[in-house]
Design a protein around this nucleic acid. Structure first.
Lengths: 144, 144
DNA sequence: TTCTATACTTACCGAATGGAGAGTGTCGAT
DNA sequence: ATCGACACTCTCCATTCGGTAAGTATAGAA
């Protein structure tokens, strides 16, 4: 993102984690689980919700719907449930009428946000290069 | 990953990129493009191919198929085409019979691999925590 | 002559994804 | 009495994803 919603502390934590990673521990079962977890977590809406919450701190349902452009109610609910189940966000229900529900990131969610920061930056920095590569590729394909 | 397939140089480059990121440049169109690019790039097979190539350097089609467990020919071809189009990999065709085609990461692809490294490490480090969160969530749900 | 290896491509089909839109329950305001 | 706000939930439908299986082209081996 141009707008970097993750705190310097969160990034520092992520970097510390990276630095302290043990060099070798090749367990295929762990590998499979990690792949699965990444598949779960690296989806469009999850990443956008993550960003919105990292930026605003505390949001209720409709505010979140506005903050995540293009999301449908269905997808937002679904994404929020999954993220809650995975321990990435906390859901705070105020038993009032009309209903009021607030969402915020947990420590775990903040950590993930920081980890994704690198990818976001990569995308931002290499956007043009990727677009050029695509143009070149399509041109080559058109020649044939 | 337990196995970290990305070179220290690539990681260093990614970290340098992060450090030098300008603090504010909020263009919603860029934002949309970045989101789109991430959606394109953060998919299961792309990430597994990225990892396999980072680890082995140079692989031909059937070797890749073996290195990426569970991938079908169709998905592998599709993924490789997309990655080539996006400039993440180079496809080297040797005009011999039987055909011989080799794939390797470009600089761009290496950069993306390094960027994803953080997410991978996060997943590895927080796997247990996520699983606990899920268990707790499901228990709470069962109570109701 | 038939078989094998390689790197695909194409056709088909079921499963999963995800959007649109309507319905739900309750309370306060009009 | 009806309406709107809120946070969903449910149903229907189109699109996409992804697997299986078969086909293609070519040369050397059996």
């Amino acid at each position: 993102m141009a707008r970097l919603p993750f705190s310097p502390e969160a990034i520092a934590r992520a970097e510390a984690a990276r630095a302290s990673t043990p060099p070798a521990a090749i367990d295929p079962r762990v590998e499979a689980l990690v792949n699965q977890l990444i598949g779960r977590v690296a989806d469009k809406w999850t990443m956008l919700v993550l960003e919105a919450l990292a930026e605003h701190g505390l949001l209720r349902f409709t505010a979140l719907a506005r903050a995540v452009p293009g999301v449908s109610q269905k997808m937002l609910t679904q994404t929020l449930r999954q993220m809650e189940r995975d321990g990435l966000i906390t859901r705070i229900v105020h038993p009032v009428v009309p209903p009021k529900v607030e969402y915020r990131l947990t420590k775990l969610g903040e950590g993930l946000g920081a980890a994704f920061c690198g990818v976001w930056i990569w995308a931002e920095e290499n956007l043009v290069e990727v677009e050029e590569a695509r143009r070149a590729f399509d041109e080559r394909a058109a020649d044939v």
